[in-house]
């Protein structure tokens, strides 16, 4: 029971964590990317559709990543080159993805409801030998898909990139004090543009991690995960491991919601609200604590 709950937690965490790692890069560059939701949604459709059409998971994931990065590039051009308000462009991204995915599914698949892609290859579970035999927590340690392992691996990689490379150092300096960064010759434009693209790649992976295990797509299936990821970025305080912990909390909230739906009679819609309530409460606690620590200074 506990083991399987933890398992669900990790599985629910993966799409949020992936998107949040992407959001972390835009956040570090000093911009709030509220288009994560739309990028995820776009990739959720494109990845499963292409995987179904080509029979290749890899090509599906790549197509999803490209589609999300495209949205990210549009966001970057509009906010950086055309000086549009980054929030508004983010909203546009979400709206475009919501409309475009339903439009494409109607046009390409001929239906607007839930689409099950029977031809799409299964995202196989990786069972680590022996680990699964450990009582209670065995289920927690093994049997994850490659996307779950990828999310954890990328967290470590992001930590390395952000804190141990000169690129990461420059990126952080752009976000912290762009005037100073500019005065020492670091290009704000290039770093922000790159950060958008990176966030698109990660959000794309997050979207693929959502639809590929189900081999299905339904309009609006991200259901606010991009926004939750955004809060995870805020709570993570610029550290990938912080983002990991925040995502884990939100994954657990979703797992609670899922588990209760299976074992109780509480209306499922009410339980669907749980992750949002948890996210909101987490954000408020974070803000109150930061506020208090600033007061004390």
């Amino acid at each position: 029971m506990i083991g399987s709950f933890m398992h669900t937690t990790i599985v629910m965490m993966t799409p949020i964590l992936l998107a949040a790692l992407g959001g972390l890069f835009t956040d570090l560059s000093g911009m709030l990317n509220i288009g994560l939701e739309g990028m995820m949604l776009m990739s959720a459709f494109v990845s499963v559709y292409v995987a179904n059409a080509t029979g290749s998971l890899l090509i599906g994931v790549l197509a999803g990543v490209v589609s999300a990065s495209l949205l990210a590039a549009i966001m970057a051009v509009f906010s950086l080159n055309l000086k549009a308000n980054v929030f508004v462009v983010g909203l546009a991204t979400n709206l475009m993805a919501a409309g475009m995915t339903v439009f494409l599914s109607g046009w390409l698949v001929g239906t607007r409801g839930t689409i099950v892609f029977h031809e799409a290859p299964r995202l196989s579970r990786i069972d680590v030998p022996l680990l699964g035999d450990i009582p209670v927590i065995g289920r927690m340690l093994t049997g994850y898909s490659v996307m779950d392992f990828l999310a954890i691996g990328l967290t470590v990689a992001c930590f390395f990139v952000i804190f141990k490379t000169s690129y990461g150092y420059h990126l952080r300096s752009v976000g912290r004090d762009y005037k100073t960064a500019e005065s020492v010759g670091i290009s704000i434009y290039r770093h922000r543009f790159a950060a958008f693209i990176i966030s698109g790649v990660f959000a794309g992976l997050g979207g693929a991690a959502l639809s590929l295990p189900l081999r299905a797509f339904v309009g609006g299936m991200t259901g606010g995960r991009g926004w939750i990821a955004l809060v995870a970025v805020v709570l993570g305080r610029g550290n990938p491991f912080g983002v990991l912990i925040a995502s884990l909390i939100f994954g657990a909230a979703s797992a609670v919601s899922n588990t209760l739906q299976a074992v109780t009679d509480i209306p499922p819609k009410l339980l669907l609200a749980v992750p949002f309530v948890v996210t909101l409460v987490a954000m408020i606690i974070h803000a109150v604590r930061r506020h208090d620590s600033l007061e004390q200074q």
Binding site: I74, F78, L82, K83, A84, N85, V88, V89, L91, A92, L95, M96, A98, G99, M100, V102, F103
Partner: peptide, 14 residues
């Protein structure tokens, strides 16, 4: 919705 989203994009592109 696609047209509306396009407007959204363009509307603050100062």
């Amino acid at each position: 919705r696609i047209i509306q989203a396009s407007i959204f994009y363009l509307v603050t592109a100062e």
